[in-house]
Simulated scan of single mutants.
Amino acid sequence: MPKRLPFLSGHGLGWSTRQRVAAIGLGLAVLLAVAATVALITGRTSTSTSTSTSRAHAPSAVSGNGSPTVGPQSSAGAGAVAKPPSMADPVAFAQAAAVMLWSYDTRSTTRGQQLAGMRAWLTPEGAYADWASLAAQVPDPVLWSRMVDQDQYATATVDEAHYPTAFKQALADDPAAITEAYIYAVTVTGSQRIVWRGGGAGSEDRSVTLAVQCRPHHDCALVSLAPRVVP
């Protein structure tokens, strides 16, 4: 059994997936329905039946072949938060996004920088962007300051990512639906390792379903986090 983490277990970035109940905005309710219609935002579904797996460590960059790779990336004013990669593959982008969401470094990044870095991943299309579900992953200012006192940081590893079964079925039922918003549902699994002052450390499994927008001839961007994992 991993050691219990000092400040993040059951809170913020350290929540287990079952504990994360984030606001989902405009349409993920249908995505999460037990029914086969995984509709995002507009009530439309996303596309593709392919799946892929890879491993990545956070903070991460993305290699030219579209797979997450080891290596720190920082954006201006965002501390150690990784920059969004330039890629058009929803599954690979979701893997990189999960690594970003499960990673932080209070030694070099303020809470404001963490939020700013995460916001850079959000789609610029206001009709679909669900910033609340992303921002909810960051601990409140009091907890963040306690984490800073402990020099706490986290790295993440992605093990697998795939399109949920309900999403693929919805696409099969209505292949043209994707062309309205080009929003894809991707479930990512992996683990998060948290380290703090005095040699303390612990690891926990992580799993999340992300809504990713990948319009043709545009880089992918995050839309939302689902409040529960979709298999």
Rank of each mutant, 00 (worst) to 15 (best):
V81E: 05
V81Q: 06
V81K: 01
A82V: 03
K83N: 08
P84C: 04
P84H: 04
P84R: 03
P84N: 00
S86Q: 14
S86D: 13
S86I: 11
A88N: 07
A88I: 02
P90Y: 07
V91N: 10
A92M: 09
A92S: 12
F93P: 02
A94H: 06
A96V: 00
A96T: 09
A97R: 12
A98K: 01
V99S: 09
V99T: 12
M100T: 15
M100A: 15
M100C: 14
M100D: 11
L101V: 14
L101C: 12
Y104H: 11
T106Q: 07
R107K: 15
R107C: 14
S108Q: 14
S108D: 13
T110Q: 09
T110E: 12
Q113P: 00
L115N: 09
L115G: 07
A116D: 11
R119D: 13
R119I: 06
A120N: 10
A120W: 01
L122N: 09
T123N: 06
P124S: 07
E125V: 00
G126W: 12
A127N: 15
A129L: 02
D130E: 14
D130K: 04
W131Q: 14
A132Y: 11
S133A: 13
S133L: 09
S133F: 03
A135G: 08
A136N: 11
A136I: 08
V138P: 10
V138M: 13
V138H: 05
P139W: 02
P139K: 01
P141T: 04
V142C: 00
L143W: 07
L143G: 01
W144E: 02
S145G: 06
R146T: 08
R146Q: 15
R146C: 02
V148S: 05
V148Y: 07
V148C: 03
D149C: 06
Q150S: 14
Q150F: 12
Q150A: 15
D151T: 09
D151S: 14
Q152V: 13
Y153R: 13
A154T: 05
A154Q: 04
T155Y: 01
A156N: 03
A156E: 05
T157A: 06
T157D: 12
E160A: 10
E160G: 05
A161C: 03
H162W: 15
Y163I: 03
T165H: 08
T165A: 15
A166R: 12
A166P: 01
F167Q: 14
F167W: 15
K168D: 05
K168A: 11
Q169S: 12
A170N: 01
L171S: 11
A172I: 06
A172W: 02
D173I: 00
D174C: 01
P175T: 04
A176Y: 04
I178V: 13
T179Y: 04
E180W: 09
E180M: 11
A181S: 09
Y182W: 10
Y182K: 04
Y184W: 12
A185V: 07
A185R: 01
A185Y: 06
T189L: 08
T189C: 08
G190W: 03
G190E: 01
G190S: 05
S191K: 04
S191E: 02
Q192G: 02
Q192K: 04
I194V: 15
V195W: 06
V195A: 09
V195C: 10
V195G: 06
W196H: 13
G198Q: 09
G199F: 10
G202Q: 06
G202M: 06
S203F: 02
D205W: 01
S207P: 00
V208M: 14
T209C: 09
L210E: 05
A211W: 02
V212N: 05
Q213T: 05
C214L: 03
